[in-house]
Each structure stands twice: as C-alpha cells, then as structure tokens.
Design a protein around this nucleic acid. Structure first.
Lengths: 141, 141
DNA sequence: TGTAATTCCTCTAGTAACTAGAGGTTCAAG
DNA sequence: CTTGAACCTCTAGTTACTAGAGGAATTACA
C-alpha cells in the first residue's frame, strides 16, 4: 500500500495533481486509513503511470479518459485506441510543421537586429510586420 | 474611426478578445461615443496587429507587454527585444525537438496495432509502457 | 512513551488566454 | 421610426494544474 506521497515519488506526478485526477474521475477513489489518508495499490500505480505517459505524449485528459475506458475492451472498440493514436500522430506532425514555420520567421527576426542597433531596432519592426513573413501562421497552438 | 467590430474584422482578433486585451492593459482605453461604444484610431489598429503577430509567433502576453513597453526605447533597452526573440526561438526549437521524439514514439505505438488486433490491442499496452520509448520526454509543453 | 518533523487532509483561489452567455443599450439602414 | 445587428458590462466556464491556509494524522527518534 502506497501513500499519496509514495505514489507521487514513483510516478513523478505531483501530489495535488493526483488528487486532481481523482476529482476528475481518472483515478478511482482509493481506500483510506482510519485517519482518512489515501492508500493506493499496484493497480492505481499502473493506472497513474499510464496517465502520465499519455500526458507526456501530449494527449489531453479527455483522450486519456477515452483510452482508460477501453481497458478490457474487445473487437471494434480496439479500433478506437488505434484511432486515438493515429489522430495524435497527425496532430503532432501538424504542430511540428507549424513550429518550423515559426522557427524560420523568428530566425529572420532575430537576425534583423544582430549586434548593431542603429536607431530603431529592426526586431521591433519585424515583430509587428506580418507582411514580411511568408506563409501564414495559424492561430492555433 | 473604427468600431470594435471593424477592428476585429481587420485584425482577425475576436471582439471579446479585444476587450480582454484592453482589460489587461495591452491596448489603451479607446475613446467612446456618446452611447458608450468604443471607437479606435489607426494607432490602435497597428498595435493590435502587432499583438496578434506576436501571439501567432507563440509569445506569451507577458512578453508582448515587454515588447510594447520598448516602443521608442533606445540603447541597451533594445537588447531586450532581441533577447525576447532569441528566447522564443530557442523555445520553438526545443518544442520541435520534443515533438519529433513524440512523433517517433507515436509511430511506434500506432504501428504496434496495425490492422490486426489479436487479443489485447498493443496500442493500449504501448501507451502504458514507458520503458519501450527511448529518450525521456520531458514534462513540459 | 512523548514530542517534533513530516506528511497528509479539505477547501479556496490563482494561473494563461481566452470564450460563452445573460440581460440590456445603441447604432445604422430602410 | 422601427427593427435588427452590433454594442455594452458582468459573471462564469474552459484546461490542467499549482499554491496557500488552516488543521489533523503519521512517522522517526530519543
């Protein structure tokens, strides 16, 4: 049996975050000691590791919920898990592409004021000037 | 003179967001009509475009405030603008690198359950299994 | 066994950067 | 001059946590 602190140490998930997950229904309510403190078993540890891994991969909690609900599922439900992974992969690739655009533009901006700042810094100008950048950047993260 | 809706159309920034920026001090309080509606001038339009561009580049509002405060600055203050650009660039590169790690791992996960799902889908297993992934992914976005 | 340090409890509120809605007023067109 | 679109303020909700207050339980050591 682990205390909430033990669980935190083993999973690198902070104590308040564990309680937060419990509140959100991602973790089942654990047993309590006579003094009302949470005690967790192996299953809770695994589940929390699973959640943490998903989060590290960038899955929003809502998708983690989706995956958790598939536990022990069979047949067509399994496709769901696969779909989530695929969707996430597409999303990541999209994010990479957009960030690479930003990288190019930020490089341009940064170079604009490299060392010499004569009168008005070109960086400020570049930040404000949308026209100089090729390729629109979208509004999403 | 532009109404808030005009400004919104010209900048692609939503109306409530413009008011939000005003509340945060990013935009100065505009003139009002007799009926209490906001009226903006050219300067406000430019400032809002600047803010939007910064946001598109991924700068948090706090950094945008920093840049805005540099307007008309001179000498060493100008380095601040350059620093912000550099910092943002480093951040973007970092995000790209991490996302590329995720891409690799998601590919692995997705492939693990490609079409055939025998008994227990490997995707679910792979999501939970942190050990199979090389290179730790950090906890930050 | 006593006590002090540590960990735990709940609850509220704050973070970023908006977005949505309620309930009401003003403006512009026909 | 009336309608309908756009505007006003204000509150609350979103995501995924984090921080703090105030107090109780557990653990370590003498």
């Amino acid at each position: 049996m682990y205390s909430i602190g033990d669980l935190s140490r083993r999973t690198q998930v902070k104590v308040p975050t564990i309680r937060f997950y419990e509140g959100k229904g991602l973790l089942p309510k654990p047993e309590r000691t006579a003094g009302n403190q949470r005690r967790y078993d192996e299953a809770a540890l695994k589940r929390l590791l699973f959640i943490r891994h998903c989060r590290d991969l960038g899955l929003p909690l809502i998708d983690v919920v989706g995956l958790l609900s598939l536990e022990g599922a069979a047949g067509s439900d399994l496709n769901r898990a696969h779909e989530i992974a695929e969707k996430q992969l597409a999303d990541v690739r999209d994010r990479i592409a957009r960030l690479q655009n930003l990288e190019a533009e930020l490089t341009r901006i940064s170079v604009a004021c490299d060392g010499k700042h004569d009168h008005v810094c070109a960086v400020l100008h570049a930040f404000g000037d949308h026209s100089e950048c090729m390729g629109t950047h979208s509004h999403k993260k």
